[in-house]
Design a protein around this nucleic acid. Structure first.
Lengths: 215, 215, 215, 215
DNA sequence: CTGTAATCGAGACGGTACGTCGGGTCTTCAA
DNA sequence: TTGAAGACCCGACGTACCGTCTCGATTACAG
């Protein structure tokens, strides 16, 4: 385990020396997103980000070990927007979150960066962990919440009792999450087609009633 | 439109001079995959590929315009393995293809490269087109085939008549493809968990019966 | 002209606030010389000096405007050792001072730093002035003293009378200084050979009797 | 001993690959001297040299390991100008070469760079060797030539016979070289005064007749 | 004593240059 | 014309120092 001094300045009491500027933090993340919009992930450079943020390259590297980690943090805050307002029934809830996530992925900064860092994470465990905690968990929470709400409404059967019931519930949440998020990502990035109301409706129908329901 | 002399050696009749070695082609693609396994997409370099293939960089660039296109071709051939043997019922067919695609994505060269080039394709139309023709269409074909087979078996309702029926069918195939491929990619790369028989079964059940069926 | 607050703490009367530590001054100059010995001029850094002196970089810059000036002062004190004991005759006096200066230049901190700051001084007038007052004048004084002593002994003709006599004397001192100091510096740094008793004798002979005396 | 691939491409017969451009060599050295004139040694950067030469930084580093070695080579060619025309008598010969060398050192590119690389050479043996072969030996040759000519004229006693005679001659040449070159360097750089005809005359007189002759 | 005004250690900061690396092109020679 | 070798231009990398700055914590001397 490397002695990571990056991130989390963690303003300890006995801290000496000049403290890190919090404005600088924000300026850098904002600049990163702006640069992603303009030049995309592939052409994104640390120098460019530094220049846009009005900051020295050194300052970037003091906080983030590399481009990947910076971008994860820059993009992560966008996922805080995601919410799950109660629209009365499960299908409406699903369509709502699908549209929200679709809109988020339609933004150029997300589109170009998200899969890139995921690809990098296949050979970088620290990065994968950062993605999980900064992005994935934020999304999974919504699936959990929606499922519980539907169970309260009686739209979905309650979790089985005992430990194996809890395990099955966890598995189900994982599966549903992969299906929903995966489908949206795939349509947006691979198929390159928009996640609109029509698609969201068709998708939610499939999810609720299975393949037979599509006809 | 750039004057693409790349790819498609297309052995024209009146072609003069020394012909390109086909062994060289294979050696390069093999070296590319081997390098992907060892260093991942992020650290992959053209020089490295050239060295491994025992070939000069010039030779690479004579055949592929850039790193992205080379990698797409190197990975694309792996997708030729995918088949859809008739296992008797729709659910078994789905589970079979899910496991096949899961196994393919479990290979490090696919895992690290696929999403990387997809990410690049968000800012490179030529690359997106190459991905579509070399990879996506190969997969979509399987969805189409499986659906037709299930319709012949009576497991799924037949396409509606007339042009709007055909359109609905196309939409359905697109949706199903995004759901299946998206779920597998997401589980493998983002959730970083294996696509095994249990998961394949649970997923196919969800797909066939909808959320309610999970309980 | 910049408002130089550097150097010369000059304990003014009405001075309030915490006074500068004099021990710190010494510690810094010692650390500078030690660092020069270890890493040479080219690799010398202010941070390194600060660390060795157990002092913050700020403290250095409060006292010296830059690396050059610090090094000049650090090296200058070494030139205070130079003396001109009366050895009875001019040649012995010359050989004595030549050996002293040779020994001084043989020290690694002097060797590596002296010509470096001289080189810098070609594009920095303030630095040249500092070198002149801190180093050059200390040496020139010896030439002046030796010449006067030799004139008293009758080994050299007295200065001519009147203003043009004084001018000629000044010119002669400058010339002699350049010849002696230059020869020693050149032998040490460029020819990279030692200034030992034999060389000192041969050199003093040349100086006293001219080229013909070498045979 | 490091495997130095720098310099001396040494166009071997069986050489493959694109050969190094000789024009590039010249362009770089010219650019180096021009940059020295404009910004001085201290502010000289490899990037600046590369830009001026219309060349990539990589190309510089392929040929020279660092700034010091590049500058030595760039300055060295200037020393090829030095000659020793026969002016009839020893004193005139000396004054001629003194003025030539003085003029050379008065050029800003020489002034700022020469002592800088000499200073660096105190902690870099490879650099010292390069300086010796590229610069020092070119100058020493002139001393040797002048001495022989004066001996033929009868202005200086001939070398003693036998091996100890040869040794003494070598020592004398070394001494004379250090005295002449050292005096000129010292006057130019340290005393910062010009080497003009008057000084050259006074200096040559001192060299020929000794200190007594100055009166 | 107590406030004021400096000093001090620590370290963040904006810069500038470093020396290296990789991408993609071009040049030479041999096959 | 292909192909190997490698020079070349370009641009980004991540690091190292520079000299400045902002902190909080110490001092001395003045009132």
């Amino acid at each position: 385990m490397v002695a990571r001094m990056h991130r989390s300045p963690c303003p300890r009491k006995g801290r000496t020396g000049r403290p890190r500027s919090v404005e600088t933090d924000r300026a850098i993340l904002d600049a990163t997103r702006a640069a992603l919009v303009d030049v995309g992930w592939g052409k994104l450079t640390m120098s460019e980000v530094a220049t846009r943020a009005g900051v020295a390259k050194t300052t970037l590297y003091r906080r983030w070990a590399n481009k990947n980690e910076l971008v994860v943090d820059a993009v992560a805050v966008l996922f805080d927007e995601l919410e799950l307002p109660d629209r009365g029934c499960l299908q409406a809830d699903i369509e709502g979150v699908v549209l929200q996530f679709g809109a988020l992925l339609a933004r150029p900064e997300t589109k170009t960066a998200l899969m890139a860092v995921v690809a990098e994470s296949t050979t970088d465990d620290a990065l994968r962990e950062r993605i999980r905690s900064a992005i994935v968990d934020r999304q999974k929470r919504l699936v959990l919440l929606g499922r519980e709400r539907a169970q309260r409404r009686g739209e979905l059967p309650p979790d089985g009792a005992g430990p194996e019931g809890a395990l099955a519930a966890t598995r189900a949440v994982g599966l549903i999450f992969d299906v929903i998020a995966g489908a949206i990502v795939h349509r947006t990035l691979v198929s390159a087609e928009p996640v609109d109301a029509a698609w969201a409706h068709q998708f939610s129908t499939l999810l609720l009633t299975g393949l037979g329901g599509l006809g």
